[in-house]
Amino acid sequence: MMLPEHVARLKQDLAVTKKTDKPIIDEQQAEEFEVTIAYAMSVNNPLIFSIFMIQELSINLKVSHNTSIR
């Protein structure tokens, strides 16, 4: 059995360890992303993006590019 203070401290420590730093994307990585996105769009493959948020919210976007315009 644990004291409520210990449980609260463990939850706080867990929340702190789950936090991640904002990724830093250099120029070469940005160019690689551009090439990958351009290729996926040229062969009409779906794209899935994960966006970094400061809060503990994670957003995944699935983008499908349709090249046939009617």
Rank of each mutant, 00 (worst) to 15 (best):
K62T: 06
K18I: 04
M1A: 13
L57G: 11
K62V: 05
A30S: 04
E32F: 07
I59G: 02
E27P: 04
V63L: 03
A38M: 09
S50E: 15
K22P: 04
R70T: 13
P23L: 00
S68C: 06
K22C: 05
H65Q: 06
V63D: 00
Q29D: 05
L3V: 14
E27V: 15
E56Q: 07
H65C: 07
Q29M: 08
V16Q: 10
P46W: 00
I54D: 14
K11E: 14
S50V: 15
D21R: 10
E27I: 14
S68W: 07
I69P: 07
V63C: 01
V35W: 01
E56Y: 02
P23M: 00
H6M: 15
P46R: 01
A38C: 07
F33Y: 10
V63Q: 02
P46V: 00
K62F: 04
V35K: 14
M41A: 13
L3M: 15
L57W: 07
N60R: 11
F49A: 02
L10C: 05
S50P: 07
I59S: 02
S68N: 10
Q55W: 08
A38H: 10
D13M: 15
Q55C: 05
Q55K: 13
Q29W: 02
L3E: 12
E34S: 15
T17C: 11
N45W: 11
M2K: 14
P23A: 00
I69D: 09
N60K: 14
L57Q: 10
N44M: 09
Q28P: 04
A40K: 05
M53G: 14
A15G: 08
E34W: 09
M1Q: 12
I59Y: 01
E34K: 14
K19E: 01
Y39V: 13
A40L: 04
I37H: 00
D21A: 14
S64T: 13
T36Q: 13
M2N: 12
H65I: 09
I25Y: 01
S64G: 09
E5W: 08
P23Q: 01
L3D: 14
M1F: 13
T17G: 05
P4M: 04
S42V: 02
R70G: 11
V16W: 00
M1P: 10
Q29I: 07
H6D: 15
I25H: 04
F33A: 06
E31N: 10
T17E: 12
F52A: 03
A15R: 11
L47V: 01
P46I: 00
L57N: 12
E27R: 12
Y39E: 10
E56A: 05
S64Y: 08
E31Y: 11
D21G: 13
K62W: 06
S58Q: 12
D21V: 11
I69H: 08
E56W: 01
N44W: 01
K19Y: 03
A40Y: 04
V35Q: 07
L14V: 12
L14M: 14
N45G: 05
P23C: 03
D26A: 02
E27L: 12
T67G: 13
K18Q: 05
M1T: 11
F52N: 02
Q12H: 12
I48G: 06
N66M: 08
E31T: 09
E31C: 07
P46Q: 02
N44E: 15
S64I: 15
K19A: 05
A40C: 06
I24C: 04
F52D: 01
R9M: 11
I69A: 11
F33W: 08
M41V: 11
